[in-house]
Structure formats: C-alpha cells, structure tokens
Design a protein around this nucleic acid. Sequence first.
RNA 1: CACGCUAUUUUGCU
Length: 309
Amino acid sequence: RLLGNLMVTAYGRCGSLDDALDAFNRIDHPNIFSGNALLAAFANNGRLDVARRMLQTMPQRDVVSWTTVVVALAAAGGSYIDEAVALFEAMPERNAVAWNGLISALAENGQVDQAWHIFLRMEEPDIVSWNAMVGGYARNGRIEEAKEIFDRSPAQDVVSWNTIIQGYAQNGLLQQAKELLDRALARDAASWNALIAAYTSSGHMEQAKELFDQMPQPDVVSWTSLLLGYAENGQLQLAERLFGVMPQRDVIAWNAMIAAYASQGKVDTAEAVFHRMPGRSLVSWNAILSGYALHGGDRLNQAKRVFDH
RNA sequence: CACGCUAUUUUGCU
C-alpha cells in the first residue's frame, strides 16, 4: 500500500491522472494517505471540479485533504480565491500548514494584502509563515515591505535569508542582494545560486563566475545556472564545456543544454542530446520541439517524427 | 518505540 501511495503521488506529479487513478484502484485497502495522494493529483493538475467533489465524497478526510483543495483553489486565482478562503474558513480544524498554504498561495497570486490579513489572524505564525510573507511581498515588487517583515520576524533560518536575498535579486537590486549574501547569518548553496542566477540572466557573467568560484560547494543548480548563462550570452562552447565537466547532471541540466542548442539553431545537436539523455521530462520535449519550430523550417515535420518515436 | 507514503516558505530548464 505504501508503494501504491507513492505511485499515485508520482503519477500525479507528472500529470498522468489516468495512471494515478489506476494505481489508486490497485491499492488493496486504500487509506487516507492514498485518498489524499489521489486528491492532490487532481487538485494539482487543474481538475479543481473533481478535487472539490472528491473532498466531499471521500470516505475519510483530514486537515491534509482540506488543505490540498484550499491551496489548489487559491493557486488557481481569479474567482477561485474567494472560494479558497471560504473553504478555509469552513475547515473543521486548521494547522500551521493549512494557514501557511493559504497565505503562500494567495501571495503567489498577487493577493499579498489579503495574505497579510490572514497572517495577522494566526495565533502563532511559525517561521514558514514569516518566510511566506517575505517572499510574497518580494515577488509582488514590494521589496521594502518584504525587508521590514524579514527584520521583524522573530527568527531567521536559511530559507529566510535565501528568500530576502532572492527578493532583492529578482527586483533587480543586485548590489543589495550581494551585501545581504555577504552578511547572512545562515547560508547554503541556494543563497549563492539565487544571486548567480540573477547575474547570469542580466548578462553579468563575470560576477556570476566569480561567485561560482567563491562559493563553498557549487551544486547542480549552480552549474546549470552558469551553463545556461553562457549559452544565453553567446558562449555556447563554454556552456558545453561546463556541461561536460559538471559532477552530476539531472534532467534540468540536460534540458538546459537542449534549450541552449535549440535556441542557437543547432537542432541536430539538440536532438542528439535529447536521445542521449537518461530520462526526459515534458520540458525536454518542449525544448526540442521549440527548436524545430524556431529553426527547423521544413523540419517541423521532423519534429513530428521525433514526437512519434 | 521510532522512522518511512499525502498538503505549506527560498535557488537552475520549455
């Protein structure tokens, strides 16, 4: 059953709802974990109608079930926001994850003021709540308020620091982001990576490389950011070289390389990489197909060939 | 007895 639950989740994560449902039906005596896994599969793949109905009809439901649907509704935005809040208010019990999930989803959707009001209703917001608000304000371009909340939060963990660093970086305030990185009390690879990505995407490859060389332990994210930065800044050969020497490559790194070749019109090389990689995601397909669409000319037909394989 | 399967906050790919 444990394995069955995992399969439901796995299929849900990759959007295969039919397979998720099959996996669920093969579980001997589905428990609430199984039900919640299936519910999440629907909720996280846009089947809000099904998720809503399932929440009412499933044999047992708990705070996880409710939270799954509340967050999915809030993440959908638009008119679903009010419904999410109403459902949240109707929950028989709410734990920290429920509160935090709603706050995060609202803030992600541009409803950061509403998120703040709900935050204020929490008896004891935890560090995730605070971090969610910091990130929410930052993502909505309100970096000063984000910083105020960061400063006012009772404790800061590595995620807090990363969130505020990323906040400055994504608002184009690279200097401030760098200063925060330098004096952060908690840092991990993501702290450096946030800034590296900001540098590469704004064309500051020298600074990106410098940070990469300075950081204690570059991870696959650091390597991929730098690689893609070179590719996008006209240095495809450097990108290739990095790809060749990076310690491990995950599917995102492979996809980045495909996208790099595809965007340069090297569709054959992109296709070779596509075939050579150990596993493909939906993004791999999109990357290779967009290469053909952009540069293939008549080759769009060949794209169909790849697709049919 | 713990731990492991489901919902929440930070960094890279279309």
